Simulated assay, not measured.
Amino acid sequence: MERLNEYRVMWVMVFFDLPTETKKDRKIYSDFRKKMLKDGFVMFQFSIYIRHCPSRENADVHIKRVKKMLPERGHVGIIRVTDKQFGEMELFIGKSPEKVETPYLQLELF
Rank of each mutant, 00 (worst) to 15 (best):
G87F: 08
K68A: 15
E57T: 12
I93P: 00
E108Q: 13
E101P: 03
V14Y: 07
I48N: 03
S96A: 06
E2N: 10
M1I: 09
E72W: 09
F16V: 14
M13R: 13
G94S: 03
E2Q: 09
N5I: 13
P97K: 15
Y49M: 11
F46I: 14
Y104D: 07
K24I: 11
L109A: 13
F46T: 10
K23F: 05
L107V: 12
E101K: 14
R8Y: 09
F15G: 02
L105K: 14
G87A: 12
L91I: 15
E98V: 14
K99N: 03
V14L: 04
Y29M: 13
F41G: 00
K34W: 11
E6Y: 15
I93N: 14
V76P: 00
F92Q: 07
K64Q: 10
E21S: 12
C53Q: 03
R80W: 11
H52A: 01
R26V: 04
G40I: 15
F32E: 00
T20H: 06
S47L: 00
E2W: 14
F86W: 12
M36K: 15
K34V: 09
F32Y: 08
R80I: 04
F15I: 07
F16E: 05
R51E: 01
C53W: 05
K95M: 09
P71H: 05
I50K: 03
E108T: 15
P103L: 11
R3N: 09
M69C: 11
N58V: 06
N5L: 06
V42K: 15
D17H: 06
E6P: 00
F15M: 08
M1K: 04
V76A: 04
K67E: 14
G40E: 00
W11T: 01
D17K: 15
Y104V: 11
